[in-house]
Write a protein that binds this DNA or RNA. Structure first.
Lengths: 196, 196
DNA sequence: AATGAAACGGAACGTCGTTCCGATTACGAC
DNA sequence: GTCGTAATCGGAACGACGTTCCGTTTCATT
């Protein structure tokens, strides 16, 4: 098993100086553009902001989704690592679950259009979907199992469906002031509580 | 109240015979293509199936979304009309709400990609979103209010957020066998129950 | 300096929704 | 029947998108 998915050597010391410089410029530019124009911003805009040609993007990041992944990798990892920590710290598994979900929802809602991008498993964002799942599913499973074992929630919903549900509920939360994704996710979690 | 939004005179007796014929051919072709290739099917495919040029589509339906609306108008209307009926027939308002939600979810999940199309309020599907809301929001409000008045559910979630939540949960339900939108919607509704 | 490989940039491709416009057709007036 | 005209038609053309291609430039090595 290699360092799974390091898209085109994100950080592996490449031979040439310009290559490394451009890769970093691309990541910085993408981060900026994603904030100002959303994750759906045209590839050309990102290339322009980084001062490179479009071809350069695709040499470093095989597809649009890989660039998105590279930009948000740190935050996804942080979210993944927060799971066990919360479980160890929280008063109950359910409390930890709630807090972790808050973290995840905050992350999705904060990035314009990320939730939207993640579910449309069209040709374009498949890798994104996959990366999120690979990284977060085990954590979510652990939290869900713990809360189920302690009898706080029902145990008949797997983490995959739970996470997809949350992701879906976050769609459009950034563009519509009348829609409060956090609230609906809270409702979904409430529906998960053991009737007892 | 007029027949709000009759996109380009869907059924108003147009002057010319060929125009009427093409409009019907377009509706039939679109219905077929939507079933086989999803709501996202290229406009050109629909035009080809109907045996007309792409220009003809846009004379009858100003935008892609208007065609989608025209195809599903009957079913949306049926869903809207089922609301009061269920409320009158059901044992409790909550039961009526649950059944109506089932109806709505079935409708969304059955049409490939409809849910996905409805929330991406990009330039393209805005009208679709709007039509659904115009037609179904009053009905949903009525059901929600009735169930809240009878003390069965909490009253602090408006119909708009509720419907968006349901719509979002249905996204991708058709393409992913591991994802059961009906279940998650049921969980959401369960979370709505009054703690008492 | 010379050289070969790696990286560059932006033109070009295929797809999409949509617009445009010259050709065609139906229908009322004669 | 025929003719004029306005409505309708079909598909080429446009602009935006993600992605690919390839001639040119730049780097690291000698």
């Amino acid at each position: 098993m290699n360092d799974s998915g390091q898209s085109s050597g994100s950080s592996a010391r490449s031979k040439r100086k310009d290559a490394r410089r451009n890769q970093q410029a691309l990541l910085d530019a993408a981060a900026e553009v994603f904030v100002s124009s959303g994750v759906d911003a045209p590839v050309r805009d990102i290339a322009a902001k980084a001062g490179v040609g479009t071809g350069t993007i695709y040499r470093h990041f095989p597809t649009r989704a890989d660039l998105v992944i590279a930009v948000y990798r740190h935050q996804v990892d942080a979210c993944a690592e927060a799971g066990p920590a919360l479980l160890a710290a929280g008063p109950t598994p359910h409390a930890a679950l709630v807090r972790w979900v808050d973290l995840f929802v905050d992350f999705l809602v904060t990035k314009h259009g990320l939730a939207t991008a993640m579910q449309g498993d069209s040709t374009c964002f498949g890798p994104l979907h996959t990366y999120f799942l690979d990284r977060l599913l085990p954590v979510c499973t652990q939290l869900l199992d713990a809360a189920a074992d302690s009898g706080e929630i029902r145990s008949d919903l797997d983490a995959y469906q739970f996470m997809r549900g949350i992701g879906n509920l976050c769609v459009g939360a950034d563009t519509d002031p009348r829609y409060d994704a956090r609230r609906l996710v809270a409702l979904l979690v409430a529906g998960l509580r053991q009737p007892h």
